[in-house]
Write a protein that binds this DNA or RNA. Sequence first.
DNA 1: CGTAGGATGACACTTAGTGCCACCGTAGCA
DNA 2: TGCTACGGTGGCACTAAGTGTCATCCTACG
Lengths: 204, 204
Amino acid sequence: MQQDKTRLAISRAATQLFWEQGVAATTGDQIAAAAGVSVRTVWRHFRTKESCAEPIVAHSWSWFLATWRSWPDDLSLEEHVAAEEKRRNLSPQQQADDRAAAQMIVLSRTEPAIRTAFLMSSDLAERELAPIVARRLRRAPDDLDVLAHTAAINAVVRVISEEIIVGALTRDERSPLADSNARIINAVRTATSNLIGDPIRRTS
Amino acid sequence: MQQDKTRLAISRAATQLFWEQGVAATTGDQIAAAAGVSVRTVWRHFRTKESCAEPIVAHSWSWFLATWRSWPDDLSLEEHVAAEEKRRNLSPQQQADDRAAAQMIVLSRTEPAIRTAFLMSSDLAERELAPIVARRLRRAPDDLDVLAHTAAINAVVRVISEEIIVGALTRDERSPLADSNARIINAVRTATSNLIGDPIRRTS
DNA sequence: CGTAGGATGACACTTAGTGCCACCGTAGCA
DNA sequence: TGCTACGGTGGCACTAAGTGTCATCCTACG
């Protein structure tokens, strides 16, 4: 608990510094000072400098994963996402984290070090997603088809989110952010040949 | 040219050391010595120690990418892959590289540093794949749907290859390596709702 | 009040990674 | 043959990333 809070504090400080002055120009000492902890504590919580960004980047997936986790059998993906979207209510802190995560994704286009953090957190999300997909399909979590569907879903969500976020932050043309959920859901259906998306018929 | 040969030599040396004694226990000095170059040259070619593995890991994708690049419009994916598979003829050097790549993929299950290299090379492959998919679909390479299809294809190829390779190297149960191409092609079709796989009708 | 245990800080230490300059081989050119 | 321009490399000093170890502190629990 306290562990996680410290981790987050470090990650917030690190991502802000990365965004303001670049990754190379940011030292471990600066991150530690900005987070209000010692350098030693930074390296206790993170393998490398760039991996300090992971918790904040992972924040991008948190709503997505939470939504999928709570997806009931008898709703379509469209219905469930719409309902969750309505219920959504972000604290200022969460909004700030979201914004920082978006900045990291933009940075990842030019900074290989951040790209690795982004890809790692996507990989972690995939592992969390697999059992959810497995349960929905009534199959084993280590089934090869389940893994393939999971990877495909995760990949299209990643790439579409990335495009929308980068588009919104770099160009000021109004990106089609409004229907981003619809785009993602359609892509998920396409990427699974519609095996994922519809409500599940009760087999009782 | 000379650049690439040096890069490869370093990568071969590094991957072998990583496999034999682990990543943490392998120093830059050892890699340099094993590759027959100076330490300075190692860091000239690679950002980080773990990224030394990237060229060899990227080798995993080379046959896959070459096959897709040469895929003619009037063949199905099944037909083309079967033809390419028949034509395939690996030099001993290429076989050794393939083997080393497989070892790195196994290592990436337990070594986060290698996992990042693996994911980075997968990300690079995705960038190379996008224009190929775009051309096949007669759409722009930066089209959002094209990017989504590309990501889905790349993801299923990655995860299925990974499972097969890891299964073959860790368990000695005979993995279904024989029909791995068929599995991958089926997964690609599923992950694109059959938009990719069939021959393209001439529109003339 | 005493203490066991997990998290942190301090500090010395190793190794990853960079800047800088000298060197060497090769290609071009007179 | 000699001059030079240049891309790749080695050597070396240096900064910063990351680890091992021990003392300290905070908290929970009896």
